[in-house]
């Protein structure tokens, strides 16, 4: 079970890496240019990414609403692993659900310190999409 979970996370991290959404080096000085697609296939990155994702998921508690609920939240991690800011970028319009998402990130703090070479990225912000999903699909 545990292994399956980790395998899924790894697969997803790799999917994220391939889709490389924000990393087209579009002007605004995000910095990594084309090299940034490389960040997310670096095992050091993937390991950290997967760890904090699992930590946040485990600290997330919610019951209720409908399976469609989705909240997008932006949070930053400083060099010590402290979550320094959390901001809802897109609300689910269910206050209880939005709050559960913010609590999940805050209560996961402090997270492990980010790998040194990715400090800038993690302090600049992580955009996390929280989806309630179907009750039956969860273990």
């Amino acid at each position: 079970m545990r292994q399956r979970l980790l395998a899924e996370h790894l697969a997803e991290a790799q999917r994220t890496a391939r889709s490389g959404t924000p990393l087209e080096g579009k002007g605004t000085g995000a910095g990594e240019g084309s090299g940034s697609a490389g960040i997310q296939s670096d095992p050091e990155f993937i390991y950290y990414y997967r760890t904090i994702k699992e930590r946040i998921k485990q600290s997330w508690t919610f019951y209720g609403g409908n399976s469609e609920l989705t909240t997008v939240v932006l949070f930053s991690i400083d060099e010590n692993g402290n979550v320094t800011s959390t901001r809802i970028v897109k609300s689910s319009h269910d206050l209880a659900f939005d709050n559960s998402v913010v609590r999940a990130i805050r209560s996961a703090s402090p997270l492990p310190p980010p790998p040194e070479k990715y400090r800038a990225q993690f302090s600049q912000g992580v955009e996390a999409v929280f989806k309630l999903g179907e009750l039956s699909s969860q273990s």
Binding site: T21, L23, S36, W60, Q124, G125, V126, E127, V129
Partner: peptide, 8 residues
């Protein structure tokens, strides 16, 4: 400027 995205 979030470069890192995740879905939970």
């Amino acid at each position: 400027l979030a470069q890192i995205k995740m879905e939970i």
